[in-house]
Design a protein around this nucleic acid. Structure first.
Lengths: 274, 274
DNA sequence: CTAATAGTGTCTATTAGACAGTATGTT
DNA sequence: AACATACTGTCTAATAGACACTATTAG
């Protein structure tokens, strides 16, 4: 095909000569929720939570899955993810990042579908409307060691556990290959997707300010520390935590009272930090 | 559509009802090369290099691009990337990781193509055959500050520079949006893809053992330090470097002589480190 | 007063940065 | 001998871990 120019080439290009597939995006929407305590002295217990949707149709009818949808021909993956996020939450200008593209051949029983997963973090207080009636927030309890990840999902009506085995992918990095050992309630490969998202979030907690996307404008340092602790699933020492967080936040003159203990200063994320 | 079971649903499923697109994978193959020095005393100068392919056909005829190809219907993205890597280098069991999925609507002038980029690291000494005749190793010189990335490519026949502007994507993380300011020689969005790969590699150098994928079995600590220095584009202090690297390598009884200076012990990557 | 959280001071251990010094090959 | 790199010792600065202590509220 001896074309004279790129224009000429493109005019005669037959786009049907390569095989095609459908693409979707799935979005992991993480947030933090409070449950009231019985003891007036204690803080509200925080939970790390994810938004799941109950499938109304086949395949995987009645199983839970991540919000997602097909990518249109006139939108990028980022745009598709943002659109789907807005559909579920009616929120805009939300933190979102591309996670990983999943491409197992039979990950969808209908046909070959490649899916790019996104991770999004929201402050639940921003939700001004109800989430769709087939959607639900699940609190997660994550137990992880170097061999296994154990995630328990609980939305106060039903609860279930997903178990994932980790095997080191190669010697030189900390990358693991995940394989689902137990999963009776999540559709598609979404157990893997959620596990990847949790892993990414845990990492980014340590070296970025990503956590503030889940926090309300004003928060106490105790609340902030709680969020770190539930996601990382370990206790942190107060003085060390405050040292690390010190130049990321600024103290306001607001105070939170009402607990049966010393009131706490309210802080705010400091924008123009060095 | 009131199907009785998943089997029944799948039997009647019409896969043509969703729009489809083609997917490709592009692979950034990074390595390190030596150039001989004029001074018998000095070490060989090392270069950080990438494998590029000259496009033989439209679009972007005669421009350089990353090795890549269409994803087949019966292979995953990982498999496609591994296949393409083997085509270019005839190497197997090589370090490869998924980088990012690029989906700009007009990134390919032919049609809508979404491409998942992979990053691969090789030790050039493993190359037992010639690379394809339309492929070439380019040494890269990277100058980066918080506003701009400047990459100069040089394969000893031609050289060119790509300039990329960085703008902070959001406040809470260190993520940047890259936009190409100058690029006359790289096809598609591959300037962006390479910049993303460099960024990922720089990060992983600091907290993983990824560098050893580019090293031969035996190496001196000076050579290893050189590799860090050319990729990070900064000088490191010897004692600090040796402290950090100490428990990742083991000394062998081999020695490298021949330079006009004290001989250097040869080390090896230590597999069963704590 | 008590229970619970808020917040700080300080000691110690570990790690990172800096620099100076000694060692040893080839020409 | 001179040069370039190899390699180590040590001081200092910065950071992280641990623990103990004081402060303040609602009930």
């Amino acid at each position: 095909m001896p074309y004279k120019s790129e224009e000429e080439f493109l005019k005669h290009y037959d786009s049907s000569k390569f095989e095609k597939l459908s693409m979707t995006t799935d979005i992991i929407i993480f947030s933090v929720s409070n449950s009231l305590t019985t003891n007036y002295r204690k803080l509200n217990e925080k939970h790390f939570s994810v938004l799941l949707v109950k499938r109304q149709d086949y395949p995987f009818k009645d199983k839970w899955c991540l919000p997602g949808g097909f990518v249109k021909m006139d939108e990028t993956l980022d745009e598709a993810a943002t659109r789907i996020l807005a559909t579920e939450t009616n929120l805009h200008n939300i933190y979102i990042e591309q996670l990983y593209t999943f491409s197992d051949i039979n990950r969808d029983p209908r046909m070959r579908i490649v899916s790019t997963a996104y991770m999004s973090l929201i402050d639940k207080n921003m939700l001004n409307e109800k989430i769709p009636k087939n959607a639900s927030w699940f609190n997660m309890k994550i137990l992880e060691d170097d061999k296994t990840i154990n995630i328990t999902f609980d939305n106060e009506i039903e609860n279930f556990t997903v178990v994932i085995k980790k095997t080191l992918k190669e010697l030189t990095t900390d990358r693991y290959k995940y394989s689902v050992v137990k999963n009776d309630n999540l559709a598609f490969d979404h157990a893997l997707v959620i596990a990847s998202g949790i892993s990414r979030l845990k990492n980014k907690l340590e070296y970025t300010d990503i956590v503030f996307n889940m926090m309300p404008e004003y928060f106490t340092l105790g609340e902030l520390q709680q969020v770190y602790e539930i996601i990382l699933d370990k206790k942190l020492l107060d003085p060390a935590f405050r040292r690390i967080i010190a130049d990321k936040v600024e103290k306001t003159d607001k105070v939170k009272t009402g607990g049966g203990h010393r009131p706490s200063a309210l802080f705010r994320y400091k924008l123009n930090k060095k």
